[in-house]
Design a binder for these strands. Structure first.
Length: 337
DNA sequence: AATTCTCGCAACCGCATAACT
DNA sequence: AAGTTATGCGGTTGCGAGAAT
């Protein structure tokens, strides 16, 4: 006998997640910690596969996730790391803790891959330029140096990754309690329901809700589309706050009303346990979101610390230039080869 | 204004490995 | 130890939104 199936395959819902589902999922993780995915669908009444729940949590609801608008620095890091590690998105994501592997992968496939291709073509006509210089350097690295000592190179790379992980771990353990990883790594998830960690989740949901509400205002009342439940919620909510983007964009009362209406939904009440509804009252969420907003004023983002650290490691004594070849200075790391 | 095309992203699929009974 | 499922990861797909015609 093996494990019992994670969920009933029949009647499992697919497709985009609704805000109610998100809230149920976050509430569950708040109570039980991430990891008990198998029990989630039955305990919460969510008609989702446990795998789908885990993906939703890790990619979108997990606290501390930054979405959209990759910075130049992040872009450089991805290019650099992709060249070094290949399509090991999970490994690359270690260096960009606020980004998910899925997000990085998507960004690479939609933006960076094309960029590199273009630059590649440009270079064939006009010689080297910024990004291509990097790629060219790396191509050169992998081709010409492979003959010298590939094993040594791989070992060094592995050591570098391990060092990065170690430093990341240290940084996270020193980080304030809002650090998402503190929550995730806690030994006892039962006592993990610190308000700040949950606030980060609510912030993620708030962001998602804003998106829902925006889309609902633009899509004029076609609430009977295929995604009925979600669209219905969104349109109802937006109408309740007059559909004014100002209220929404501030994450202010419009959003709070959306939360309140969501928590008043029958579907949620019926499917969630008493415990869940206790700790996820709209009032509690309001407080946490406000708290979170205040903290953002003074907090140095974790990603900044890590990026600085990583870049410092890789760019010792290198003056900032436009040319990305300086990002990986092969001349300065002869011991690698 | 209507239709077609392109792009970006969320979610799913399939495989490899770990974990459980 | 063997069989079965969970988990993690990379690749791929489908859909919605905006641009182009």
């Amino acid at each position: 006998m093996g494990r019992v199936p994670c969920c009933d395959k029949v009647g499992v819902k697919k497709g985009p997640w609704t805000p109610e589902e998100d809230i149920i999922l976050v509430s569950y993780v708040q109570q039980h910690g991430p990891g008990n995915w198998r029990a989630l669908p039955t305990k919460t009444g969510l008609r989702r596969c446990s795998k789908s729940c885990r993906l939703r949590w890790t990619n979108y609801l997990r606290p501390g996730i930054k979405r959209g608008n990759f910075t130049d620095q992040e872009e450089k890091m991805i290019i650099q790391l992709q060249a070094l590690l290949g399509n090991k998105w999970a490994a690359i994501a270690v260096y960009l803790p606020e980004r998910t592997d899925n997000d990085i992968k998507n960004y690479w496939n939609t933006h960076l891959k094309k960029k590199m291709k273009k630059l590649d073509q440009l270079d064939q006509c006009h010689g080297s330029n910024d990004l291509f210089s990097l790629e060219n350097g790396l191509t050169h690295l992998s081709s010409s140096n492979s003959s010298t000592s590939r094993g040594q190179w791989e070992r060094t790379l592995q050591a570098d990754i391990n060092m990065a992980k170690k430093a990341l771990h240290n940084a996270l353990s020193l980080e304030n309690p809002t650090s998402p990883h503190n929550y995730i790594n806690q030994e006892n998830p039962q006592v993990s329901s610190t308000t700040t960690t949950y606030a980060s989740s609510t912030e993620n949901i708030a962001r998602l809700l804003q998106g829902w509400m925006r889309s609902s205002t633009s899509s004029t009342n076609n609430s009977e589309s295929s995604k009925t439940s979600s669209n219905n919620i969104a349109t109802t909510d937006s109408s309740s706050c007059d559909g004014t983007p100002n209220a929404e964009s501030k994450g202010g009362m419009g959003l709070m009303e959306a939360f309140e209406s969501l928590f008043g939904l029958e579907s949620f009440e019926s499917s969630s346990s008493d415990e869940l509804s206790q700790t996820t009252t709209p009032e509690a969420i309001k407080i946490e979101i406000k708290k979170e907003e205040n903290e953002h004023d003074v907090e140095v983002p974790l990603s900044v610390i890590l990026e600085n650290w990583l870049l410092d490691e890789n760019t010792l004594n290198i003056q900032p230039k436009n040319d990305l070849t300086t990002f990986i200075s092969f001349d300065e790391t002869p011991h690698l080869f």
